[in-house]
Design a protein around this nucleic acid. Sequence first.
RNA 1: GGUGGGUUCGUAUAACGGUUAGUACUCAAGAUUUUCAUUCUUGCAAUAGGGGUUCGAUUCCCCUACCCACUACCA
Length: 561
Amino acid sequence: MYLCGLFTGYQENIMDRKTRVRFAPSPTGPLHMGGVRTALYNYLYAKQNGGDFIIRIEDTDSHRFVPGAEQYIIEALNWCGIIPDEGVDSDGHVVETPSEKHPHAPYRQSQRRSIYRKYAEELVEKGFAYYAFDTAEELAAKREEMEAGKETFIYNHITRKSLRNSLSMPESEWRPLLDTHTDWTIRFKMPENRVVKMDDLIRGHIEVNTDTLDDKVLWKRADELPTYHLANIVDDHLMEITEVIRGEEWLPSLPLHYLLYEAFGWQDSRPRFAHLSLLLKPDGKGKLSKRDGDRLGFPVFPLKWTNAEGEVSRGYREDGYFPEAFVNMLAMLGWNPGDDRELFTMTELIEAFSLERVIKSGARFNPDKAKWYNKEYLRTKSDEELTELFIPVLENHGIQVVGCAKCALTAGAEVTAQGADFKNRIFTKDYVRRIVSLIKERAVFVADFWDIASYLFTAPESYAEKDAAKFWKEENYSLALKVADFILDFKGEFTKAALEGPLEEYIRGNDWPMGKVMNCLRLALVGASSGLGIADIVTLIGKDEFSRRIDRITGTLGSGK
RNA sequence: GGUGGGUUCGUAUAACGGUUAGUACUCAAGAUUUUCAUUCUUGCAAUAGGGGUUCGAUUCCCCUACCCACUACCA
């Protein structure tokens, strides 16, 4: 009866509370895409439940701090559209002083130092923890010694008696050490032979015997900082976190965390836990690492990162991925909506997400699928938007884009009716937009536009040998030149719609081989036997440029007629 | 080694204990097209192995194998 009452008390308590989840990264380097996924799932869960998504920086390891990592993490999440409700201000800085919107500041654990010591000592007073005076060297030696005898050293109820701590020594002996020594720790006194019963939102019921666990360090005197375990429980409690959604690597520490909540007397408000599986490398075995990205040619980080040694790691953003595509791809790696839908906006993800449908097993990352997502998102973008994105790419290739024909004049060029000045490499935005609308279905990234359509901005500099050998034959190009003349003499409106029909009629009417003739022209215009329809190309580049390209190829490849 | 978690086509995944085991990516073939690409159609391809429970197991239980994590005064 008593236990039953406790249980319902816990349930009611949790049910009444506003959903509050946190993403608590350690600023030890750039945020891995697996980390982004964890943040995303937290965010989706919070928003679905009308709750808060909180950022907390877990920088309790002073030795592993990496400058810039914190800012990187915030910027990466921001790029993904994962916007925190609490912990980070609108300028992207971690909040350091409490306010109405950020009542639990500071959100950086190194700035919450003073909070943790009293909690650690409370545990000692209650008998759930103790002071340990063994130096790191002593423990390492002990560990080595036991491993030599093929035994595993665990700091637990068996070994702690023979080690230097407040449990094995008389108080008169250890008490003074608290002042004279500066490298003692507070360790959790792991109970003997107790089965901890836990529930995970994704994995279900789990039981672990405490005899397999060790007395974890909770607080370090040397730097006056807690370890992850203590800081995490204290902060989650203080920040009123309702669900902890984190990586699988934390599952083994869950019993400790349960026991800590119990020791503090917080078991009734303990958050619920969900442990996410890891992201695995595309091939072979093991988890996804930066090396796999380098080896297989894809980013593992959301944003580009340069480390202290100057090594650069590519990012999804810099590689040309749309954040929506990246987020969508990540969401589907380990979760599915239960039906065949694959394309989701953030809003749709918030609606459809559920922890129940998160997959337990590790998910291999598939770079091909990531590209497919980008391709799908690329074609949903408007021509205007894509044009704006394409312009910087063009500029990198020495192409100038102007707003209109008049603007071209002020830029010292005169564009054709189509909006092109090939000599000065100046084109109107409208010209670019027409091209974008024609080629966007062929691309995965905006940067691909150049590879696909450079011939619409500059004449080909070389001609694909294989294609030339196949199509540039006397019987073909003599006919192609006649077709070129037909196009040049075309009196109707010079648009694809007007030209296409008559052009085809002309060739078929003469009973000429359509494929061969067209590819001859294409070779002259594109430099290869690929690309848009001839009518598209010529009406885009205009008669002058068309004629120039025909002349060039006859001199280059032809018999010099 | 110990503890915990996991295992459906190559990959991501679907399937109240009853399906010809579905879908997407990749790959291949075909159709369309003036080429390429797109698009469309088709195809290849999976329940790790062994025991149970059951009329019936991808689904529940056990064992084995394999994979992953943890086993730090790191998170």
